[in-house]
Amino acid sequence: MFSAETLEKFDREVAKYPVEQKQSAVMACLAHAQEEKGWLPPEAIEAVANYLAMPPMAAYEVASFYNMYDLKPVGKYKITICTNLPCALSGGYHAGEYVQKKLGIGYGETTADGKFTLKEGECMGACGDAPVFIVNNRSMCSHMHPEQIDKLLEECK
């Protein structure tokens, strides 16, 4: 199901917790699983659950609760845009509108070529740098004004 590299990451996460508390690593393992698969197909959730000796339903509860897990396939680049109030005050809405127009898709949608998915995000804890985007859950982009947005989309090959 998972590459040796991902399994090694799983082990590193499991090692952080007391031996009898393997389940604690579920969030991290799901994240690594998603990183490998691009999203979280049910089989991956079940495999993580089995790896941690927890009920698949408990792992699914976690996967469906935290909003950075993708339970449906997403584009190669998932761009999450914070539109919460502090960001909106500094251009969060506008940046979102700009990207949507540019890509021709709305929030929750993926471009026809499967390259981009747009998501409306909640507070990322970086309101001073608004507008803020996160690409693929990992890379945070600050001060996303039109020039920066154009550059980002350009760089996403």
């Binding site: 049910p42 009920p55 339903m57 699914y60 509860e61 469906s64 609760f65």
Partner: peptide, 16 residues
């Protein structure tokens, strides 16, 4: 059975 999702979209379901 578990309660999947959160907020008002919470729902009781089985895995898959």
């Amino acid at each position: 059975l578990g309660m999947a999702n959160r907020n008002m979209h919470s729902e009781i379901t089985t895995f898959l």
